[in-house]
Design a protein around this nucleic acid. Structure first.
Length: 295
DNA sequence: ACACGTTGACGAATTGATCT
DNA sequence: AGATCAATTCGTCAACGTGT
C-alpha cells in the first residue's frame, strides 16, 4: 500500500492565504506568487486531497465542506512548522559575541541577561568587558566590540531609554546631611560624577569628595558605610542603600538631578548571534518592570 | 471597462535514470 | 561516486472568459 501523500507546507500556506485574504490575487501578494501560480497551487492541493476546496460561484470563492475540514488542519500544520523552526533557531546560533557594559549594568541586570542568553543560545561564547561609556562606544565603532550598553547620546543606538538619576545614601540617612556634603564618586570620565558636581555647584551647595576611585563596588561600599552620598539610578538601591525621593532629597538640601540616557549600540555588520544579543538587551531596556540599566 | 480566475505556452530548476 | 541528459515540476506571462 503506497504511503499517503504529504501535504506540502507551501500549498497549505497558499490555501490559508486565499481563505484569509478572500481571493487568489490578494493571496498571491501575501505568499509572493503570481495570481496564476496561486490558482495552480490550489488546484494541485485539490488534486492531492481528492476534493474541491473552493466553490467557484461566479467571482466569489467559498470553502467547500472539504475546504472547511482542511482549514483547521492547515493552520495547525503551519503553526507546528513555525514552532519547529523556532525551537531549532537557538541551537543554530554559534560563534563569539563581545559585549561591553558600564559598571552599573554589571552590578545589576547583567547577570540576568547573560543567564537568559546563555540558556537560549548555549553554543554562543560571550566575552564581556566592563568599561567607561566612551571607550565602549569607540570599541563598537572600531569593531573591538559587537554590542555595548553605554550612557550618553542615543544617536545611532539600536535602542535607548531615559531614566532619572537619584541621590543614593546609606539606609539610615540622617535628616541633616554634613556640611560640606561628602560625595563618593567614580573617577572621571563619569556622567554621574559630572551631573552631581554640576547640580551642586549651580545650587551653591558646599561639598567635598570623600571617596573617589575606579570601582563602583567601592563607591557603593563607602555610601553604605555612611561616609558619603552618591548619584546613580534607583535600581542600585537595596542592600544597605536607599534612593532618596525628590522630596526627601530637597528636604536635605540636595538639588534635583537630570535624567540619564542608556543606549544600546550594535556593530552594523555584527553577526546573527550578536544581533540576537542586541535584541535580548533591547527587550530588557524596553521592559517596564525591568530594572533600570544605568551607565 | 474593470476585476478576478483559468488556461496554454514557455523557461528555469529539480529529479531520476543511465553511463563512465 | 560523479557526470550527463531527458523527464518532470513549478514558476511567470499573456490571452481569454466571466461577472459586476
Amino acid at each position: 500500500m503506497p504511503d499517503a501523500p504529504l501535504l506540502p507546507s507551501d500549498l497549505l500556506r497558499t490555501f490559508v492565504a486565499v481563505v484569509d485574504d478572500g481571493g487568489m490575487s490578494a493571496a498571491g501578494l501575501r505568499v509572493g506568487r503570481s495570481q496564476s501560480a496561486v490558482s495552480l497551487q490550489v488546484k494541485r492541493l485539490e488534486e492531492m486531497v481528492g476534493a474541491a476546496l473552493f466553490r467557484r460561484d461566479s467571482r466569489d470563492l467559498a470553502l467547500t465542506p472539504a475546504g472547511d475540514t482542511l482549514l483547521p488542519y492547515a493552520r495547525r500544520l503551519l503553526a507546528l512548522n513555525e514552532q519547529a523552526l523556532a525551537a531549532l533557531a537557538p541551537a543554530r546560533l554559534t560563534g563569539v559575541v563581545r559585549l561591553g557594559v558600564v559598571q552599573d549594568f554589571a552590578e545589576t541586570a547583567l547577570a540576568g541577561v547573560l543567564a537568559r542568553f546563555a540558556e537560549a543560545h548555549p553554543n554562543v561564547v560571550l566575552e564581556t568587558r566592563v568599561g567607561p561609556s566612551s571607550a565602549l562606544r569607540d570599541a563598537v565603532a572600531h569593531a573591538g566590540l559587537d554590542v555595548c550598553l553605554a550612557i550618553g547620546s542615543a544617536e545611532g543606538a539600536a535602542a535607548a531609554r531615559t531614566v532619572p538619576m537619584v541621590w543614593l545614601a546609606a539606609d539610615r540617612v540622617p535628616s541633616a546631611l554634613p556640611v560640606p556634603l561628602p560625595l563618593a564618586l567614580l573617577d572621571p570620565p563619569c556622567s554621574y560624577r559630572r551631573a552631581a558636581l554640576e547640580v551642586l555647584e549651580s545650587a551653591g551647595v558646599a561639598h567635598r569628595i570623600a571617596y573617589a576611585g575606579p570601582s563602583l563596588s567601592a563607591v557603593l561600599a563607602a555610601v553604605r558605610a555612611g561616609l558619603a552620598v552618591t548619584v546613580r539610578t534607583a535600581d542600585l538601591a537595596g542592600r544597605g542603600l536607599v534612593a532618596l525621593a525628590p522630596g526627601e532629597a530637597a528636604a536635605r538640601g540636595l538639588p534635583a538631578l537630570p535624567a540619564v540616557t542608556h543606549a544600546l549600540h550594535v556593530r552594523p555588520d555584527a553577526g546573527p548571534a550578536a544581533r540576537r544579543l542586541g535584541t535580548v538587551m533591547a527587550e530588557v531596556l524596553a521592559a517596564p518592570t525591568a530594572p533600570a540599566i544605568p551607565g
